[in-house]
Design a protein around this nucleic acid. Sequence first.
DNA 1: ACCTGAACACCGTTCAAGT
DNA 2: ACCTGAACACCGTTCAAGT
Lengths: 249, 249
Amino acid sequence: MAVMPTRTRRAPRRTDALTRDVIVQAATEILDADGEDALTLRALTLRLSTGYGAIYHHVADRDDLLAAATDDVIAAVVAAVSDPALDPAAAPTPVPTSAPTRAAGPQDTLRSLALGLFDAVQTHPWVGAQLTREPWRPALLDVYECVSTQLQALGVPEDKLSDCAGALMNYIWGVAGQNAANARALAASNMDREQFLASVARRWAQLDPARYPSVHRARAQLREHDDREQFAAGVDLILAGIQAVYRNS
Amino acid sequence: MAVMPTRTRRAPRRTDALTRDVIVQAATEILDADGEDALTLRALTLRLSTGYGAIYHHVADRDDLLAAATDDVIAAVVAAVSDPALDPAAAPTPVPTSAPTRAAGPQDTLRSLALGLFDAVQTHPWVGAQLTREPWRPALLDVYECVSTQLQALGVPEDKLSDCAGALMNYIWGVAGQNAANARALAASNMDREQFLASVARRWAQLDPARYPSVHRARAQLREHDDREQFAAGVDLILAGIQAVYRNS
DNA sequence: ACCTGAACACCGTTCAAGT
DNA sequence: ACCTGAACACCGTTCAAGT
């Protein structure tokens, strides 16, 4: 009675063709579910029911994969701001209003772009870390273009556009990076968000109050602290600075 | 004639004791010289003429090592701002002036802290990437404390201190991260700075001018562009925003 | 062209054994 | 206590071979 030995049985293989898009999509799902360290080539072959060579046939290397996934996330946010009907986070609007409300000023557009990027990094924390590894990816050029256009509409002189756009974008990347770091730390701690915040507060409580008075004050506000609100406040602060310095009146 | 076989000869071992500080120092030198990827445990054992276990006896793991090295860099900057005599970048002043000039206002202090951090990341690019991996390291609490104190002196109300400090610090971390990314890309390109900038300009030149007008304008200014000046402009913009919103008059 | 998967080079980390 | 270094588990990547 010949029985096929189980340990040498091949893993089932996919029947449909592999594409770069399918691979990037699968990578994104792994990254979202289990973080950047979980994205191994091995994990990808298992999820896609394929071999290493198949993946390397469509993708240069792991960095290429991470960069492509990041591009997709950022590009989706910019597209949603440019044309709100494309917003994946928005409720589906089967019948587009024939007279779209187009009252959004440059400030509002900049605010929604910034908050859109914040929310995207919140759901894809690995994006925040990736931004400090690959500078000026294609998608970032779209962000720059969008920011510059709005700043110009605000009356910022042409030779100051890159300074102002840089201030706004670097602030956004900074928050994105901190969010990524927080997500990593939270995941590594094996605690839920509540416990984790409590443990941070406990650590800060042990600091010398004479040397760290401000940290102690911030600790007291930690529970009602809202990351998203604080981020929005920072955006407004920078926009206020731009208005104050380059007011066109 | 018995000859000791060369291939089995032991590597020479250090005679003085190993300390955590010595290890962190050696790691910093490797990081500065050849970037984050060059810091392998193997490279460390070779440089320190020791074994793996010796290192793991003083340091928890590779992340611990990177975090400690980052702490040292940041802490030195904060210390230099708090007491300029400690500034490692400043010229040695063997005889401290008996009447130190203490005319620096909060704005000046914040500017020197920000520029000090910028310069530190410029010479230690790996610090920029590390900041997005480990949130709220001890040294960052010192930065927060310093920033908060100065903002309070500027008249920012107490319940807005964390918003304002966050805006400033996240902007600094954002620029630090981009600098780290640029340093990585520059190192990976095997070009000098001049060639690298030219290649970036060439890539941008190929973009559709109708879709990326602002990128094309920025490209024209790329040659006379100064990262440090643009960073300082961003700091001033945020300070202007803080002044505009929380002016105490 | 597209895919397979054993093999390679190289990591971080451990631990039984030494001093 | 402090250190050694072979061994382990696990990476990303390659490439001769298949379809």
